[in-house]
């Protein structure tokens, strides 16, 4: 088996399998969560209309001052790596090619050196979050295996992508195959770890905002 065979496998059956597991898993998880439902709220809503849920989406995304002071590192590193991850994922030309070939949608890309810089910053931010998680006694206590798995599968695609672009350590063909497979790993574990928050986060936030409004504390 040559490196090229591995790359072909990664681009072919492995990708199809990983995407299938990802879609299946996400749909299943979301159904599972939302089909549980809530008891109907029989009390008349105290304030607010439908706007509160939407406002909370934004309000909760902006760190409040006292919280920011206490956990500045978590906020900065967290925001940095989330934004960086999406910049790298959505604005690198080869990635856009991939999205275009699957969905037909495409948009302009950023220059590769800029993406490169963002990738490095993202990797550093991820390392900061890991160190912080291990050093901070509360975070360490709260962390389980799933958290470290989620961190690893997020870190690997960035690292292998960076390494394949710079032709580090391994042959480019092999590195590209590993990069694609690391993304496939991310896709596969995505629905079954806390990474599912990508889908549930904003729905939960909207629900909380709406619920609070009904209770008279509209945002």
């Amino acid at each position: 088996m040559t490196f090229m065979d591995l790359l072909l496998w990664a681009r072919g059956p492995a990708l199809v399998g990983a995407v299938a597991i990802f879609v299946f898993g996400m749909v299943l998880r979301l159904f599972e969560i939302y089909s549980l439902g809530r008891k109907p709220d029989l009390a008349p809503p105290r304030s607010g209309g439908p706007g509160s849920g939407w406002r909370t989406l934004w309000a909760r995304s902006i760190p409040s001052k006292p919280f920011f002071k206490v956990s500045m590192l978590t906020y900065i590193a967290g925001y940095t790596f989330h934004l960086g991850f999406f910049v790298v994922l959505l604005l690198l030309a080869p990635h856009i090619m991939l999205i275009r070939s699957v969905t037909g949608l495409h948009w302009p890309n950023l220059p590769t050196p800029l993406i490169d810089l963002v990738a490095v910053i993202t990797l550093l931010a991820l390392i900061v979050t890991l160190v912080n998680r291990i050093m901070d006694p509360v975070k360490r206590f709260l962390s389980g295996v799933g958290d470290y798995v989620a961190w690893t599968v997020t870190f690997l695609p960035l690292l292998t992508g960076y390494m394949s672009y710079h032709h580090l350590l391994l042959d480019y063909t092999l590195m590209l195959a590993i990069h694609i497979m690391s993304v496939e790993l991310l896709l596969i574990v995505f629905p079954f770890t806390k990474l599912t928050h990508m889908m549930s986060l904003f729905i939960s936030r909207w629900f909380n905002g709406d619920w609070f409004a009904r209770r008279g504390v509209a945002s």
Partner: peptide, 17 residues
Amino acid sequence: ALSTPIDSVAAAAATAA
């Protein structure tokens, strides 16, 4: 392009959905 899938991902994704 080298970064694009070889097999049809969309069909598999639809089935999986």
